[in-house]
Design a binder for these strands. Structure first.
Length: 479
RNA sequence: GCGCCUCUAGCUCAAUGGCAGAGCAACGGACUCUUAAUCCGCAGGUUCUGGGUUCGAGUCCCAGGGGGCGCACCA
């Protein structure tokens, strides 16, 4: 393919260009189509670059499609006007080329670029799979995402949407005066959520460190430090099973705002999510699987106990007869562990029976204190905290509370978790002395929110699989 | 971690227990308006691995590996 150039002596053998400047995106050329009739050519020279993905050789004419990140356009090469025509006819699917020419319309009216000069930017030495069907084996698609992105329609768009979601969230929170921060991913105490951590080791300090399971306690320290509105968008790591809805590393948005409570955070959640949804999809009503999800505020609000009662057609509460509660657990096939109190039992019953039926955005309010070690006691209800989770399409999207800011109470909650841990619960929360010390300096009343970005992107791209919205999902190494 | 399903050419897929095949890609050729072009030709295999049953195994059985789904755990 390089027959026209000899290798100069004493110079790198790589004859490929090191740059190809001043290219127009394919999408930016499309408006020129209207001005041309079939057989007509534009007057100004343009340059495009991308991969040749379909090549149709027609003797002394060659049609190909050039694809870049913005779209695709037909290339039209002819023996009479295209430089290095013989080499052009030997292009492989997937070769990167840079093209100089003019826009045109073929006799059949297809908007194209007539190739005058062109240069090979990088060859594709491998197969892009079946020309029509590409690759579909999920294993191959995830391991070789760089191929998947080229051959499967929609994949590129999914990740473009993901990028826009994150950008939209940042813009929105910035507009509200929130400050974005970064807190440690390597932590000496993995806490802030109920999950098993990954362990690693720092050599110089000879110290085991954990990949964070949540940024929560560091962000609240920053509120103690005087940043009244902070947020972080970042990866967290949980050493748990992989499933269509779980990847060991995933992306969380957490935000904390001083002087507000969980009622205010509910309003913020609604407005943030509905804003992002409509900015990206142009509507607050979005198709998801066989459902139509309506993100238009206000969303349904009801307590966890009411929701599970409604579902089971029987009054469920933390204060209900314990024998009856245990009977229900049995009836719905929930295997209770001996250390579960009534709060945990009610929550498990709710998760088993009710969660998956909450399709439209729903705020589930007032969780039992027993399962919420970082949330503040409810101002009106004993044994419950001011906490909500948001459910959409049967899955948790957000988790939020009025933050517990009393250091004494927080210590008691940690100690209860410690007891659970000693009883064998590997995911019970770990006590963090420095965090307690920070609370002793005073955490103002604060509302906090966590949103799973991956799950939000799944909703906006109509994907049921987390791997479809994570560029490189966790997999076993190739054998 | 447990259960079920699956693995055949670079890709997508066929093949009653009886000669391992097709389409696309690749390679060689024809073709000046194609749109997954078409046509002719050629080549391509440790049927995931290792055992076993059988005259004979891609196919049946056992073990292992990769992947998928469900459960469990969680967000």
């Amino acid at each position: 393919m390089l027959e026209e150039e000899a290798v100069p002596q004493g110079i790198a053998e790589d004859l490929r260009p090191y740059s190809f400047q001043d290219v127009s995106s394919v999408a930016s050329l499309m408006h020129l189509s209207d001005e041309l009739n079939p057989g007509e050519r534009g007057k100004t020279e343009i340059r495009v670059a991308g991969r040749a993905m379909l090549i149709r050789r027609q003797g002394r004419l060659i049609f190909a499609s050039l694809v870049d990140s913005t779209g695709h356009i037909q290339l039209f090469a002819s023996a009479s006007e295209t430089d290095k025509f013989d080499s052009f006819s030997q292009l492989s699917i997937g070769d990167w080329i840079g093209v100089t020419g003019v826009v045109m319309k073929t006799k059949r009216g297809e908007f194209s670029v007539a190739v005058r000069e062109w240069t090979m930017l990088a060859e594709n030495l491998r197969s892009f799979g079946d020309k029509w069907r590409g690759i579909s084996d999920p294993d191959l698609r995830y391991r070789q995402r760089y191929v998947d992105l080229w051959v499967n329609p929609g994949v590129r768009e999914t990740f473009q949407v993901r990028s826009k979601v994150v950008a939209s969230i940042r813009r929105y929170l910035d507009g509200l005066g929130f400050m974005e921060v970064e807190t440690p991913m390597l932590q000496t105490i993995p806490t802030g959520a109920m999950a098993e951590p990954f362990v690693t080791h720092h050599n110089a300090l000879d110290l085991d460190l954990y990949l964070r399971i949540a940024p929560e306690l560091f962000l609240k320290r920053l509120v103690v430090g005087g940043f009244e509105k902070v947020f972080e968008i970042g990866r967290v790591f949980r050493n748990e099973g992989i499933s269509p809805r779980h990847n060991p590393e995933f992306t969380m948005l957490e935000l904390y705002q001083a002087y507000v409570d969980y009622n205010d955070i509910m309003v913020l959640t609604e407005s943030l999510v509905s804003h992002v949804v409509s900015e990206i999809l142009g509507s607050t009503v979005v198709p998801y699987g066989s459902e139509l999800l309506d993100f238009t505020p206000p969303w349904r609000r009801d307590t966890l106990e009411n929701l599970v009662s409604e579902k089971l057609g029987e009054q469920i509460s933390l204060e209900m007869d314990l024998g009856r509660l245990e009977g229900l657990l049995k009836e719905y096939d929930v295997e209770a562990k001996p250390d579960w109190g009534p709060g945990k039992k009610v929550v498990e019953l709710y998760e088993k029976t009710t969660e998956s039926t909450l399709i439209q955005p729903t705020f589930v309010l007032d969780f039992p204190t027993e399962v919420s070690p970082l949330a503040r006691q409810h101002r009106d209800k004993a044994n419950r905290v001011e906490r909500f989770e948001t459910f959409v399409a049967g899955r948790e999207l957000a988790n939020a509370f009025s933050e517990l800011n009393d250091p004494k109470v927080q210590r008691e909650r940690f100690e209860a978790q410690l007891a659970a841990r000693e009883a064998g619960d590997a995911e019970a929360m770990v006590l963090d002395e420095d965090y307690l010390r920070s609370l002793e300096y005073g955490l103002p009343p604060t509302g906090g929110l966590g949103i799973g970005i991956d799950r939000l992107v799944m909703l906006l791209t109509n994907n049921q699989q987390i791997r479809e919205v994570v560029l490189f999902p966790t997999m076993r190494p190739e054998t």
